[in-house]
Design a protein around this nucleic acid. Structure first.
Lengths: 215, 215
DNA sequence: TCGTTTCCTGACCGTATGGTCAAGGTGAAG
DNA sequence: CTTCACCTTGACCATACGGTCAGGAAACGA
């Protein structure tokens, strides 16, 4: 068989399955509710209903509303950081920034709720993730600024302000998630089609890469 | 004297002054509280305290929380539309889009709360201003797309997708308001200086105008 | 001065919410 | 079968919130 050691990982057991599945369902429901109603507008009852569990059960897995919210935000942050790797090991801005735009646009499409929760959290002064901003995000930002600066020094792109380039990238890519409702309304009421998403990604990449003199 | 007719306009009187001043104070406080806490997280008590009035007095001027919120959002929408005029009567994209970026960046600096309330409203599915999106905003968007297309046809800029250009403009300029806290954190904790704001505006204009082949 | 309209506000109410708890259910190990 | 740890949940509680109201104060016109 595939191994008797590491039972807790390879043969989870009913107990572990239950916990994992319930936590997953709760987090998924919470992400949606927090995104659609904001932290203050979200209710544990609504999250419970959407997860298909009694409210008291939520408090068994997550002590407080804040705890649950914190987990949701942390989860999003990890997805964001994963996408950041697109930046690395790229020979130049066309590949690096191009891949980053692709990755972030994909996240905006596949994780729109998460993006909204993040936006909401930051807009409200980042009461929960302030330390992440001051440590992880700051370090990540400094690192990418250095990469961009190197590309500039190597003559691979125009001497733009790397920091404001990053802001433009974040803003533009996340806009398709955070303001997805507005975009849908201006699109006739329905979500963007596969073709329209390709067009959006191509447009953004074209304007940005041209704007920084990389193409 | 300066005229006895139109008393209600030229000689406001104590009564009118009181109403105007109180409504102004309430709306100003409400904008800030809604921006910082979201609609669900905002409380009438907090708005009242910030406006320096007893809570019951708020309900004298604004029947419900929704009424007050609606007024705040409408007020913001008007500021936005005013800035839109920067687009008109411009001979080309350098002047038109350049002025639009300047105007929207200025609003992000002077009306950060309003921008956040708008963002929050849209992120939550625009329950209050859906009709504005479908009428005024849609019309405005179509109009500017036509202007941009004309510039493209006249060879004044590259043939980018006008719609996605607008999204990029909205996203980037509003980012400095909506994500102002994140930017401040990455700026060492303090707000951008006058010089930094000039740098930001110049960077955005440079990248965008270059990105659309206008410079 | 008097009557009328507008403005002010402390006290109050019904409801919804986050959170608690005790009692019971369930599966696995021995 | 028994034990025990883990899971489930209806009922309950204290609090906070949006909103109401009655009674009074202030402003204004005549």
């Amino acid at each position: 068989m595939s191994g008797d050691a590491q039972i807790s990982r390879l043969k989870p057991g009913r107990r572990t399955d239950i916990r994992r599945e319930n936590e997953r369902a709760i987090l998924e429901a919470a992400e949606k509710v927090f995104a659609e109603a904001g932290f203050g507008g979200a209710t544990m009852q609504l999250i419970a209903d959407m997860a298909g569990l009694p409210k008291a059960n939520l408090h068994y897995y997550f002590a407080t509303k804040e705890d649950l919210y914190r987990k949701v935000v942390q989860q999003i942050f990890e997805v964001w950081l994963d996408a950041a790797s697109s930046f690395d090991n790229a020979p130049g801005p066309v590949e690096g920034i191009g891949a980053y735009i692709d990755a972030k646009m994909d996240i905006s499409r596949t994780h729109p709720h998460g993006s909204k929760v993040w936006a909401s959290e930051v807009m409200h002064g980042a009461p929960v993730i302030q330390d992440y901003l001051e440590t992880t995000l700051r370090d990540w930002t400094d690192g990418r600024i250095a990469v961009i600066q190197r590309w500039i020094d190597q003559g691979k792109m125009a001497p733009v302000n790397p920091r404001h380039l990053l802001y433009l990238l974040w803003a533009t890519t996340q806009h398709y998630a955070d303001f997805g409702h507005q975009i849908q309304t201006l699109n006739g009421g329905g979500p963007l089609s596969d073709k329209q998403w390709r067009e959006a990604k191509a447009s953004v990449k074209d304007m940005v890469l041209r704007g920084i003199g990389a193409i």
